[in-house]
Amino acid sequence: MLAALRLVARSAGLCFVILGLVTLGAGLAAAQEPLRQEDTFLRIRLDQRDVRLEALIVRPEGAQGRLPLVLITHGKSSSSISMGDLRASSYATVARDFARRGWLAAVVMRRGFGQSDGPYPSSTSCANLNLAPVFNSDADELEAALQALQKRDDVDPARAIAIGESAGGAAVLALARKKPPGLRGIINIAGGLSIDNCVDKSRDALVEVVKGFQQPGAAPQLWIYARNDELFPPGLVDRMRSAALDAGGNVRFVELPETKPRGHLIFRHSQARLAWLREMDASLRAWQLPTWSPAQARQHFAKLGLTTRADVFERYFAAPGEKAMALSRSNKQFRFWYGADTLDRARTGALSDCGKTWRDCVVAFENDRLVLPE
């Protein structure tokens, strides 16, 4: 299911329309740019047993040497059927956004999810509410997966981050407490765990367990939540953050505006990704880790002789793919589409929208590649 999103920025009496597609369904077309995508399995050792975890690896095709590593992990549904239906490829959009920023991105399905070995290792209930074993078990898996990935010839073991959504967001916070070698940052997107029929008690338990995750010298954390997150509302998130800060945690917090249809689903929602990717880029720069270059974007802007605002142009490079930019050479104006299901769709949309105003529109960028004809 696709829905059009229109963002408008105004400067000096001019109107610049940026169109995006909000992707509400899973699944993507095959790669249409120099990214290498590999469906694979990781073999790790847990509890004196070999465990196989489903994984998706995405990296820049032509990159030389060792790349920084991002470990991407998922949330949890209350339905065991939904857990089995989830696939690593469901997160290809996020993995590809990282690969475009120069990372080797690894989506890892924890035990009991997708095609990974089972069973789901631990659970809790209102009668026996203890969240620490749940998240610590997840962290053990993620640490073992991180170690396996750091052995790859194309990975720099000294530059790694972990990002997770929902229960996966809490899992990467638990991973940070373990302080694995090479882990340089944690990104928690709408992280936590909600127990059905036990909301208030489980929220108190979540605050306490997040407080216990904090360790001196652990990797810095970026937390991102939507204002209308139905599972983790602002009051709860404020309590979690205060507990983490009081315990010495290094937490940068960002609250996104209300996101429709559901505030909890910001991880793969294209409009929300436009917002949280920009915040993530700021943290990556603060952590001295790779992302797209504002200086290079400004060079492109100057070379093209554009008359629109530079910050609107730079927003394109932070935006999620698949994306394309079309510009009018004579009028020095541009339009772009982002978050499309295919690059062809993004290219066609950008050209169509640009062509509504100007007659000489050409595609200038496909994702982050300059493809402007000579």
Rank of each mutant, 00 (worst) to 15 (best):
M1V: 11
G25M: 08
E33M: 06
P34Y: 08
R36P: 04
R36H: 12
E38G: 07
F41M: 09
R43T: 15
D47E: 11
R52E: 10
L56C: 07
P60V: 01
G75Q: 08
S77L: 01
S78R: 13
S80N: 11
S82R: 09
G84C: 04
A95N: 07
R100M: 12
R100I: 09
A106L: 03
M109N: 12
G114M: 14
D117N: 13
Y120V: 07
P121R: 05
T124Y: 02
C126T: 15
L129H: 11
L131C: 12
D140E: 15
A144D: 01
Q147K: 07
A160Y: 02
S166Q: 09
A170D: 04
R177Y: 03
G182F: 00
G182A: 02
G182Q: 03
R184D: 03
R184P: 08
G192V: 00
G192L: 00
I195K: 05
V199T: 09
V207Q: 03
V209L: 03
A218W: 00
A226H: 05
R227W: 08
D229G: 11
F232I: 07
F232K: 05
F232A: 12
G235W: 02
L236Q: 14
M240K: 05
S242C: 05
G249M: 02
L256Y: 00
K260M: 15
K260W: 15
P261C: 05
L277A: 10
D281F: 00
A282N: 13
Q288G: 09
S293A: 08
P294T: 03
A302V: 15
R315F: 03
G321E: 12
G321K: 03
K323Q: 10
K323N: 09
R329L: 06
N331Q: 05
K332Q: 04
W337Q: 15
G339Q: 09
D344S: 11
R345A: 10
R347L: 04
A350I: 05
D353L: 12
D353R: 13
G355S: 13
V363Y: 04
L370M: 11
V371C: 08
